[in-house]
Structure formats: C-alpha cells, structure tokens
Design a protein around this nucleic acid. Structure first.
Lengths: 341, 341
DNA sequence: CTGTTAGCGCGTTCAG
DNA sequence: CTGAACGCGCTAACAG
C-alpha cells in the first residue's frame, strides 16, 4: 500500500477515470452514473482514501464550520448550550469548534483571530466578563463573518443577540410560587449593576404586586456570584421571621446557601425556585428536597445556531441590532416532594 | 477598502514586493530585512490582512492542530483534563479541537473521521463506554496519525495510554484516613467488572491490611455510576454499626448518598475522601462539611498532550503498548472543618 | 455523463 | 536578501 496520503488522483489513475469524476462521485453528485460511483467508492475504501477537507475548504471557500466561544465549558449552562448548538449543527451538516476564553479578553481576541484565520463560516459567542468595549469584534465584521452573541448581550444596538426574557422569567417563577400558596418569598439576586439581575428582580416585584402581596425589601437579598456570598445570604434568611419560599436568580450563592442551612439543621423552605441552571450534578445534590427550574439553555443553543446558519446561508448583510429574546421556558424537574416550578 | 479577503498578493502588489517576500515577512523569516518586514507588516494591518490558515496547512501538510475527544465536556474530570491539554498546546503553539462523543461509538467514529479529514497532527481520546473492540482506530494508524488514549485505557498492548495508578490512589487515600485516626472506613466502589474500580478497591484493602485493621466486606459498597445507586449506598451505610470515614471512588453515587444522608438528618462521617473529581460546583456543594481530594486531572491533560507532541514532532513510528501511569497526586481541598486528604 | 483546464492562498524550491 | 515559478488536493466552469 502506498505510503502517505492517498488523493483522488491516485484513485483516478488506478481506474483510468478523470479525477473530477472521482471528486464528483465522492461527493455523491447526481451527475455521475451509479455504476462508476460504485467502482470509485470501492477503490477508495480499498486504498484507504481519506478526504482532505483542507483542500476542499480552500477551494470552495466554505468550511461548513462554526466556532463557539464560551467562558468555560465546565459551567453547566454553557455545556448545555453547546449541546444544543452541536445537535443543530450536526443536523445541518456543520462542524463545530469549541473554545473557552476563561473569561479573559486577550485570550478571547486570540481565539477570534484563530477562528477567522481558519475561515469559519460564523461564530457564536458568550463574551468574557472583561469584554466591555463597543468594538472588540470589528475583525469579524470586516471579514463579513457573522457573529452572534448569546446569553451575555453585547452592544445590542448593532449586533445580533440571543438572550432570555429575564423579567418574564422572574415574574413567572415568582407567580408559580404564589399560586402554590407561598406568601413570604425571599429573592436571591445578583450584582445590582447588572441589567440581567435587575430585570429578574423586577419580574419578582411585578408578580408580588399583581397578587397584592406586601413587598418587604429585606426579602430581597442581593449578592455577588461567589460561594461565600451564599453563606451570607443564608445567614440573612435566618434573621427573617417567616419564609416559605425562595426564588433565586443566583445559582452559586443559592446552592451554597441551601447547603449551609442544611448543615445548620435548619429546615429549608419547601418551595425553592432556581433560575439559571439545570445541571445533573447540581440537581443530584439538591434532590430530593428541592427542585430546580431550568432556563432552556439547550434551546438557547439551538436557536442561536439556527439563526447563525440562516445568516450564513442567506449571506444577508448582518442586520443591525436584532435581538432574539427567548421565552423563559422553565422546565420542571421532578422531585420526590413538592413540585416547585 | 477591498471587498472579500485580502491575500498576500494584494499586499505584494500594493508594495511592489514579491509575494514570496511577503510570505516570509509574515512568518518572520530571518531571510528578510527588518526594514521590509516593517513595511509589509504595516501594510498588512492597514489592509486588514487576515492569514488563511487553510492554505498554509494545505501547503505545509502540517496543521499544528490536535483533536481531543471526550465523552462529555460537562463532566468536570474531562473539562479539567482539557484545560491541561489546552495550556500545554497553547505553549507549544498548537490549536485544539474539542469534541464530545456522548459515549456513543458511532458518533465517536464519525468524529475521528472528521478530525482526520481535517488533517489534525494527532488525537487525544478518552474512549466511549461503547468502545470495546480491538481495532476501532485503525484509520489513525493507517494515516500515521498519532493517537493517545487517556483515562480510559484502550488495548494496552498496542497503543499509547495515559492512566492513573488506581491501586496507589486507593491505597494512599485510605492510608491517609487511617493516619487521621479512622478505623471504620466504608468504601464506595464502582462496577466490579471494571479493572479501574477493582484496582482502587485493592488499594483500599492493602492499606487496611498494612495497618492491621479488620476487613469487613460489608463496608465495601459497589454500585453503578447513577444517582439512584447513591441512594442505595446511603441506605446500606445506615445499616452499618459504626462508620467514621468513607473513601469513595465513585463520585456520582457518593454525592447523592451524602445528600441523602444529610436530608435524613443523619450525621455524615467526618472524614470523607473522594477520588475522581474536584469540580468547583461540587466542592461548593459539599462544603463546609466535607472535603474532596482530586486526582491530578489537569496534569493528566498536560502529560498526555506533551506525549502527543513528542510523538508528532519526532515522527516516531508509534511505539506499541507504551503506558504512562501517573502518580495519583492527590490535591487536598481546604475545608472549614477537618482535612480529609 | 465524463474530461480538460484553471486556480483557491500559501510556502518553497531554485535562481539571481 | 529578493523574485519567478510551481504545486499542495480539490472542485467550478466549461467543453464535449
């Protein structure tokens, strides 16, 4: 057997058929007779032919590949989104290159460069926390490479974004708790300079108002996204006179708070609604006494990917400032005790 | 500004310098004068030149890219290994393509094909649980593309593998617990047909023997890797008269067991040694009452990658059956209470 | 339905 | 130190 890589020319010569025909056959073109196709395919496997995508991509100027950049793949939210993206891409015949920025702007920029130099057809990105500028992704636009921002919106006026309706998520989660008989609902929020957490909080407040429940601002506990904040949150809960539910928009803090309370032997609220995560490991942890609700993170992946493929294939000039706001389709996870949402 | 992609020829024409020189300058060849280099680089950024890696890779027949296949990126062990791989690759000037097989053999095979057709220089893989055959990766060997198996060994006689010394890990974890005064140590094991879990168990047994502790086989609780198994395990613990530590080699089951015990209000053992994970989320969950030990998963990534790059660069014919067994460098995670290991 | 020709963008000869 | 020419493997366009 020949050393090195076998090319279509090797097949071509062996069979006395022109290499273009071989190429067409291997791409299953309708313009080749089935008989010759069979002959070629047989020979190809016989020689151990291995398609060279690089050459093909170079020639066609189309890679059928998209790049995905997330802060960390270990974060369940992102790995779920990635799964959604991959499923969609798989069906649409696209390859996916996954990258993690580690929330580092410099690294993120480097990844973008690498993806562009590999001529990906498009990019999906959840920007790093360091990414605050207004024009960090000009190189994409210059290349006319579509880029879509998901989860963490970026420069909404000019770019395509896929985000969730946080107000509605907060409203519906809270409303559900109310409809299940809860009246004293604590809300764990996140950093208050973040629009995202503000919107969720406003949803919470709106739900309380709708049902004429008194609003006690001591019941709104804002904190950062650290474990230690969760402990602090838990201590604050202990100071409140009556709590029959928690709506948490802050996963890390919420979990450590719950664990802390459990360890202290405090009975944790029967009704807890978490927004923002659905990881199996985490749900393993909080079962059976709690339930999570999960944003449709998987769906966010499919939506973002579908949108990207549309942009790629229509080759539309990128619409400025289109934002897709997902309905907060909240998924109820079964619990051995009460259903939460 | 010119539409479409700018090539070295565009730079070449604008400057009246031959494209070969431009190419050399952009690759920082020593055979170009600094002055012309500067001129070229300036022009390149001015025109928004964007290197075409595809063409370069095709031409040089070297991609400086490796593929990594893992069952799931969401599993902390794998995402840690990936981080290790990425760091190493980053330093060595390699790109990394991350793929997940979802523990599905068909998908795994397809990914291999894709990676090969993209001419990756090498592959790192932790095989899917469905991968049992002896020659599922012949296409790599045929292409002379190095492939290294990590964590889940595959056909040790013929391939390069990077695994951990499970016996030693089990021994040392158990020994540590003993040295901290524990005498009644439960061992959570995994599927008993797996060599990996057998070896860890043997390490546990060896440690008990060394310190003349009585071996009670009721204290060895084997199960599968599901949440439900963890619950069963927990129930079995309740039947035991005295337990002052747990050495768990089975992360999923161990966690759900601990949570179950907590929920039941049972005081969980003070000393718990987990082997096999170090995820932040998980450690958030089990703090402050427990501590984890983590295998050097990150290191496994660096070691496997380093080995692969060596194979790639030396272009050695792949040594048959070389297995690198890592020392189980166990990392102690701080706990607010006792240190476990 | 198949063959011919040319070229994607780059790097690497071999000249000068 | 720089230029001219060729080819990596594949496919689009045009013939036939």
């Amino acid at each position: 057997m020949k050393k090195g890589k076998i090319t279509i020319h090797d097949i071509s010569k062996e069979l006395g058929i022109n290499s273009s025909t071989v190429s067409r056959a291997l791409n299953n073109s309708s313009r080749v007779t089935q008989k010759t196709k069979d002959k070629i395919l047989k020979k190809a496997t016989e020689l151990g032919y291995q398609r060279n995508s690089l050459a093909s991509k170079l020639r066609t100027n189309k890679t059928n590949t998209i790049g995905v950049i997330v802060p960390r793949i270990s974060r369940q939210f992102f790995s779920s989104v990635i799964s959604g993206i991959e499923e969609t891409a798989y069906d649409a015949g696209y390859e996916v290159i996954i990258c993690q920025s580690l929330d580092n702007l410099e690294r993120e920029q480097k990844l973008i460069e690498t993806l562009l130099s590999n001529r990906v057809d498009g990019i999906l990105i959840s920007v790093s926390t360091q990414t605050l500028g207004k024009d960090d992704f000009n190189n994409c636009k210059q290349n006319e490479t579509p880029i879509i921002f998901f989860d963490r919106p970026y420069n909404i006026e000019e770019n395509t974004n896929v985000i969730i309706d946080d107000f509605k998520a907060g409203f519906e989660a809270t409303e559900h708790l109310i409809l299940n008989g809860c009246k004293n609902i604590v809300h764990f929020s996140g950093p208050q300079h973040s629009e995202l957490y503000k919107r969720r909080k406003n949803g919470y407040l709106a739900a309380l108002k709708k049902y004429n429940l008194t609003i006690d601002f001591n019941y709104i506990i804002a904190s950062n996204l650290m474990k230690s904040d969760g402990i602090e949150n838990a201590k604050k809960i202990l100071d409140l006179s009556k709590v029959d539910a928690v709506f948490s928009a802050n996963d890390v803090a919420a979990i450590s708070a719950m664990i802390y309370l459990k360890d202290k032997g405090v009975k944790i609220p029967d009704e807890i609604a978490f927004v923002g995560f659905s990881n199996e490991q985490i749900s393993a942890v909080i079962e059976p006494s709690l339930s999570t609700i999960s944003q449709s993170d998987f769906k966010m992946g499919t939506v973002a990917a579908t949108l990207l493929f549309k942009q790629i294939e229509q080759k539309t000039t990128i619409k400025e400032g289109y934002t897709k706001i997902l309905e907060p389709k909240l998924i109820i996870r079964n619990s051995s005790q009460k259903i939460i949402l």
